[in-house]
């Protein structure tokens, strides 16, 4: 919707109206506001901690060319990889299955509650939607009780630890995968339902009349048409689960199964003060997977959050 006037006689600079110039300046200024904390972090993360002075956190390390900016070094990033390595591995073990499971189950639920229409399904669906808005605090103590005192998951994992690549502490990650799948389901179902409502009924009706079973309709018609939505859902879920701290804090609590957000909380602080280059490198390293996903699939991410 243009409000660009461009009326004859309006004052201009190099053929652009002043109004347009101010508009772009504001837009660029806002862009700077959103980018500067990240830019400052990035610049600080490549300063060698010994030469870090903190006088110009937003400048790249250009010593000895520009005094006071510190020397270029990859030491903070090396330290971040050391400090977060185990957490990154655990986060990957957690996020991949949890994302796929919640997406797949969400698509199935939306199919059963949308494409196949029956009376009363809206009531069930409302319970799904309401689940999106539950503050996690309202379920934390029961979840901790459930995973630590009700389900003998730990005992089940002890014999499995003899297998290669399986450790006893992985039981916590499995508990976290199931929990995240359950809590991701509502938003996944909502996204898929919005998509399925837009699909034309013709094909499904024709297939039904042809005697196709519900499972065939899903596999042959709905699933192939869901692929663009799977991209949106997977990106959204990946970001949500990767970024979560609260569930990890209350289900993993501490120890070898800690995920990357847990490790990030305490990194870069010691008796001798705060190591800002290390801390910024760690923050960026922890954010890197979601940042990359966002930069490459930003349009799909926007679709997911706008829904």
């Amino acid at each position: 919707m243009s409000t660009e006037t461009g009326r004859a006689g309006e004052r201009t600079l190099f053929g652009h109206s002043w109004r347009r110039i101010v508009l772009y300046l504001v837009l660029i200024g806002m862009g700077a506001f959103y980018l500067i904390p990240i830019e400052t972090g990035l610049m600080t993360s490549i300063i060698s901690p010994e030469t870090y002075s903190g006088n110009f956190p937003y400048l790249p390390p250009l010593e000895p060319l520009v005094p006071g900016t510190g020397e270029l070094s990859i030491e903070p990033w090396r330290g971040a990889i050391d400090g977060l390595g185990q957490g990154l591995v655990n986060s990957v073990i957690l996020v991949v299955p949890a994302t796929i499971l919640s997406g797949l189950l969400g698509s199935m639920a939306a199919f059963g509650l949308t494409t196949i229409s029956w009376r009363g399904q809206i009531g069930i669906y409302i319970l799904f939607v309401a689940g999106i808005f539950i503050p996690y605090q309202a379920v934390l103590v029961p979840l901790t009780q459930f995973w630590y005192n009700v389900v003998p998951l730990r005992a089940a994992f002890e014999p499995l630890a003899a297998l290669p690549l399986v450790e006893t502490y992985h039981w916590k990650l499995l508990a976290l995968i199931i929990t995240h799948t359950a809590y991701g389901l509502p938003i996944c179902t909502l996204l898929f339902r919005a998509h399925y409502k837009k699909l034309s009924d013709e094909m499904v009706e024709a297939a039904q009349l042809d005697g196709a079973s519900v499972a065939t309709i899903y596999r042959r018609i709905i699933l192939p048409l869901s692929i663009p939505m799977f991209a949106v859902v997977f990106i959204y879920q990946f970001t949500q689960i990767w970024n979560d701290l609260l569930f990890a804090l209350t289900i993993v609590q501490f120890g070898d199964a800690a995920v990357v957000t847990q490790d990030l909380v305490g990194i870069g602080v010691s008796q001798s003060g705060t190591n800002f280059p290390l801390r910024m490198a760690a923050a960026l390293l922890a954010a890197l997977p979601t940042l990359l996903v966002y930069i490459f699939f930003g349009d799909k991410f926007a679709k997911g959050v706008a829904a």
Binding site: W242, N243, L264, T290, Y294
Partner: peptide
Amino acid sequence: LLPMSLSFVV
């Protein structure tokens, strides 16, 4: 929208 993709922790 970039900051939205970051974790609260970050």
